[in-house]
């Protein structure tokens, strides 16, 4: 979780990642952020994230992103 938070804060230092549970739905993260974030996640966790995984539910909160990462690591 710490690694993920570090990636997120580096990407968007202005966003409150710990409290915001609607990162995508509230428009806080846009498509450019998502693509940059996916690149970082793939590298850091050695996973493959496809376009099918890019749904708001997977990116709305730190917990949701972590859950997706864990799921893809298990796959």
């Amino acid at each position: 979780m710490d690694t993920l938070l570090k990636i997120l804060v580096e990407l968007r230092p202005d966003v409150d990642f710990e409290d915001n549970k609607e990162l995508v739905d509230s428009g806080e993260l846009d498509s450019f952020d998502i693509v940059s974030l996916v690149g970082e996640l793939c590298e850091a966790y050695e996973i493959e994230i496809g376009a099918e995984d890019i749904v708001p539910e997977n990116f709305n909160s730190v917990e949701a992103i972590m859950a997706m990462v864990v799921r893809l690591q298990e796959d």
Partner: peptide
């Protein structure tokens, strides 16, 4: 259907 599949 275009941007994400391309950029990822």
């Amino acid at each position: 259907y275009v941007f994400y599949p391309l950029s990822l």
